[in-house]
Amino acid sequence: MTRPQVKLTRPALIVIDVQRGFDDAGFWGPRNNPGCEANIEALLVRWRERGWPVVLVHHDSDNPASPLAAGQPGHEYKDGIDGPADLVVGKCVNSSFYGEPDLHAWLQREGLSEVVICGITTNHCCETTARMAGNLGYDTYFALDATHTFDRTAPDGTVVPAEELARITATNLDGEFATVVSTAELLKA
């Protein structure tokens, strides 16, 4: 079955937690999708060329040992991610909708009904934000290849590879909370 072409009007690009602290493989473990950051950068370039809204989100960990703790070098955005943004949201939970300033209120004030989600990590903050966006009624697009995640240990002690977690996230979201798309599809839209 061929999927219909992605058609966008004026979507907000929500770039979630693309922070230097996620480069700490000793803390997080093995990751998938080494092309994630390049895909996010390509989306940012296209959005800024079109004058579409960009939202940058950062995680403010309240754990001082976390690479994402405010005031630590890992809290900063990765190279190529910073730059002009229409809104910058700080959060200390998984959903970008529970941060400051209020993302939902801002999207409503701006009259935006479409969102594109990318960032780190696929199955945590990105998936949670996509689920909430879908439940709040936004036309939600999830740029799977512009996200990445890390291997995780399951409750039974087995390791679930990052690639499998990403595939499961895509399966959970697509058609229910969001439309899962590629960076290439979004760049053509």
Results as ranks from 00 to 15, higher is better:
43 L>G: 05
86 D>P: 12
184 A>D: 04
26 G>T: 14
158 T>S: 15
65 A>S: 02
60 D>F: 09
38 A>H: 05
119 G>T: 14
7 K>R: 08
151 D>I: 13
147 T>Q: 02
169 T>S: 15
174 D>L: 06
126 C>F: 14
70 A>D: 04
145 D>P: 07
117 I>M: 13
179 T>A: 09
65 A>C: 02
118 C>F: 06
187 L>C: 04
30 P>T: 14
52 W>T: 03
129 T>G: 11
105 A>I: 04
172 N>R: 01
23 D>V: 03
55 V>R: 10
156 D>K: 03
161 P>V: 06
105 A>R: 12
98 Y>V: 13
136 L>H: 05
24 D>S: 10
142 F>T: 13
17 D>V: 14
38 A>N: 08
78 K>R: 14
57 V>W: 12
175 G>Y: 07
77 Y>L: 06
176 E>F: 00
89 V>K: 01
160 V>I: 10
101 P>R: 10
88 V>F: 10
189 A>D: 08
118 C>N: 12
5 Q>S: 11
19 Q>C: 04
186 L>R: 00
150 F>R: 08
11 P>W: 01
157 G>Y: 03
108 Q>M: 12
114 E>D: 12
113 S>E: 15
84 P>E: 11
72 Q>W: 00
120 I>S: 15
140 T>W: 07
23 D>L: 10
67 P>E: 06
124 H>T: 07
183 T>C: 00
20 R>C: 07
78 K>V: 07
102 D>P: 15
88 V>S: 13
175 G>N: 08
29 G>E: 00
185 E>K: 00
59 H>D: 08
153 T>M: 10
50 R>M: 14
96 S>R: 07
131 R>M: 10
121 T>Q: 15
115 V>E: 10
23 D>N: 08
132 M>C: 05
136 L>V: 03
90 G>S: 02
174 D>P: 03
44 L>R: 05
47 W>V: 01
25 A>E: 05
93 V>H: 09
13 L>K: 09
67 P>L: 07
106 W>D: 15
91 K>I: 03
126 C>W: 09
18 V>T: 07
128 T>M: 15
164 E>S: 14
39 N>V: 08
129 T>A: 12
51 G>C: 09
21 G>L: 02
69 A>D: 07
108 Q>A: 15
11 P>S: 05
160 V>W: 01
89 V>N: 01
111 G>I: 05
183 T>I: 00
156 D>M: 03
80 G>M: 04
189 A>K: 03
95 S>V: 06
125 C>W: 12
61 S>W: 11
39 N>I: 10
30 P>D: 15
36 C>S: 08
162 A>N: 04
112 L>K: 01
153 T>Q: 08
170 A>M: 03
106 W>M: 13
4 P>M: 04
37 E>R: 05
181 V>M: 04
33 N>D: 04
41 E>P: 00
90 G>W: 00
188 K>C: 02
9 T>Y: 09
139 D>M: 14
59 H>W: 12
8 L>V: 11
178 A>S: 07
59 H>E: 15
37 E>P: 01
37 E>D: 09
165 L>R: 13
67 P>N: 09
150 F>P: 12
5 Q>C: 03
33 N>S: 05
90 G>M: 01
161 P>Q: 04
98 Y>L: 14
36 C>D: 06
133 A>S: 07
19 Q>D: 08
153 T>I: 13
65 A>N: 02
82 D>A: 15
127 E>G: 04
64 P>Y: 03
70 A>Y: 07
69 A>P: 06
